[in-house]
Design a protein around this nucleic acid. Sequence first.
DNA 1: CAGTATCCGACAAGATACTG
DNA 2: CAGTATCTTGTCGGATACTG
Lengths: 122, 122
Amino acid sequence: MITFKNNQYQCSMELTLELIGGKWKSLILWHLGEKTLRFSELKKTLPKITQKMLTQQLRELEASGLVSRFIYTQIPPKVEYSLTPAGKSLLPILETLCQWGLNYANSIEITDKKNICSSSPV
Amino acid sequence: MITFKNNQYQCSMELTLELIGGKWKSLILWHLGEKTLRFSELKKTLPKITQKMLTQQLRELEASGLVSRFIYTQIPPKVEYSLTPAGKSLLPILETLCQWGLNYANSIEITDKKNICSSSPV
DNA sequence: CAGTATCCGACAAGATACTG
DNA sequence: CAGTATCTTGTCGGATACTG
């Protein structure tokens, strides 16, 4: 049993999911990994997210210490989001994960093609 | 843009999340990584999941080709779940991810303690 | 531009009952 | 034991309107 920020977790995977789980967090981290982005730029990279969800997820990532928020005090407002060192330390792992997903998808598609071929009349 | 099983994905992260995203999938994979488990054993390792969700998630993982299901034809029924080679290939990455989460949580807790110390009267 | 606030619907997930 | 089926509940997340 692991205790973190007054929450209990059964295993380290549960804890990790609390940090980067959910529909959007890892995608946001992934995009911020390439470069620092303004709110509106980030929104563009995630066409399907709503403004509300983007704000909400960014706040949570900020609270976790994975993303930092820099506010330019000007009109119109400008806010930039970037990865903290902790956020950056996660990037290589996410990269490996993506590569795995891509490889796996490709291997399936190739298998499918083989099946199509072998399903021709014997 | 990536096409996989007739779905479109904007980036590889989206695709990967389709395979192992959600509240339970990576946890299930994680536990099956240690050893093959029967349905009821798996249920025990995930106290908070309902029978319905466990069945549902297992079917999806099976459809993705990450988990395989072996049925002993006997009464009472016995069904064992294990990782496919593809599922196993994901394990090292999940392991790294968990380790990262644990390290990060620890570093935070340590930082917190430091803050408590330094917050004593100067 | 970068947000809040409010309302609302869809779907994820829970509870319960039943079965091969 | 390992599921289905059905019904209900709750949360996530969308749409819209408004603001410093």
